[in-house]
Design a protein around this nucleic acid. Structure first.
Lengths: 230, 230
DNA sequence: TGTTGTAATATGGTATACCATCATACAAAT
DNA sequence: ATTTGTATGATGGTATACCATATTACAACA
């Protein structure tokens, strides 16, 4: 950096605590299916595996419990939250409401800079899908939606959608690899981006609805299949 | 109890932990304004006041943090979450979407038993408002909405609405005591109940929207007034 | 009066000890 | 073979110790 342009700014972020790190790891492990729904989260083995004390693990479990990723069951202790179709369906319904409202608002508030940003996000998603790396696809899809919610000013809704997506992330991973999609996820998101970029709130809503409808359908089939396999 | 009808059933609920109790107390203290937005939640004084160890307080703070009632700020530690109008407005918007969807679904799924239940809930709310006891009113309003969400089958949305209401409970308390309501909260809820009982989904949606619209308007005025007083 | 250095205090992060309760394994009795 | 009693291990709940860092108070110096 050119010395003459060095600036001193306020330190806004604190260094990460062990708890921050463990929380992220545990959340990712649950969302990616490393810990299966219903699996017990026993403190001492987790401490040994992660190399931290029970305080850090317990505080992490409390937080994930409030996020809905962990349940504390009588006579069982903490387990990875399970999800049935009724709950999943409700989650898709809520997503449809919040995401379509955000897409509509983003279409109304679209700017050239935002449009370029959204195109870039879509290109990244395309690349991620070619690579077929699940976690990269997830990150790209999240970035895509984050931009839409931010442009819409729907930051609170985005927090909610992220939490809900955390709870169905296993389903999302399974629907992603499903071959029986009539329209790919990428095509759905392209349609959403197109409508937003064209400043067409009605089409943006419709595109989101179509996307969610198909994702929910595949998720239902996946859950039904699992039920047969049990 | 008649000895001959004694039954032995499975024990479904575990005894309450200290953490459960403290969590409820802390949540109520925040929601009722005992702890003001921005106020620091310092561990050791809380431990002394509640007569518990730091483990219990820390785990409680982690949970409330995930609920959005507490924020951890750099160089400051945990504080009671603050709320600006932009956030409050978004919360009212989301409530409008989820509550109107629930009222619509409840109107479609209404039964005589449910209608009697809803009428009873409304009567309890009326009584609570006559008593002018804020916590009783809150409990009655919560029970009213809980029934609607349950009848609609929107249990996940209910969890979300409860969380959001927790974040704006201070505003709700202030709007409740506001005298400049053109229509009282009770009248709004009566309108909602009427529409649901008449099995009129459209009117149920409209009644919810009217209610939320007015509540949001008063909340905005309250926040604006607070800004002036700062 | 303003600045700097330093000691004391406060605070959150993290580890660990202790305990009560529950689950499991196994022996003894029927 | 089944039931019962008991010992052992596992587990979550809770308390407390220790530490590093940040904040505050105050003295010394210019």
């Amino acid at each position: 950096m050119d010395q003459k342009t060095l600036t001193l700014e306020r330190i806004e972020t604190a260094p990460q605590t062990l708890r921050d790190i463990v929380q992220t790891k545990m959340r990712d492990a649950i969302m990616s299916g490393h810990f299966a729904p219903g699996e017990r989260l026993v403190e001492r083995p987790l401490c040994e595996q992660l190399g931290v004390s029970r305080t850090v693990v317990r505080e992490t479990i409390r937080y994930l419990e409030a996020e809905g990723l962990v349940e504390t069951i009588s006579h069982k202790g903490p387990i990875v939250a399970t999800l049935n179709w009724s709950q999943a369906k409700q989650i898709y319904d809520i997503r449809r409401q919040l995401e379509s409202a955000a897409a509509e608002a983003a279409a109304k508030a679209s700017t050239p800079a935002f449009e370029a940003d959204l195109r870039a996000a879509l290109a990244q998603l395309d690349e991620a899908m070619r690579a077929q790396d699940w976690s990269v696809i997830f990150a790209a899809a999240t970035a895509f939606y984050e931009r839409i919610f931010a442009q819409a000013g729907h930051t609170v809704a985005w927090e909610i959608v992220q939490r809900l997506n955390g709870r169905i992330s296993r389903l999302r991973a399974l629907t992603l690899s499903a071959k029986d999609r009539s329209t790919s996820g990428l095509a759905h998101m392209s349609a959403i981006a197109d409508a937003v970029i064209r400043k067409d709130p009605r089409d943006a809503r419709a595109a989101v609805k179509a996307h969610i409808k198909e994702a929910a359908k595949i998720a239902q089939a996946v859950l039904a299949q699992e039920k047969r396999n049990d």
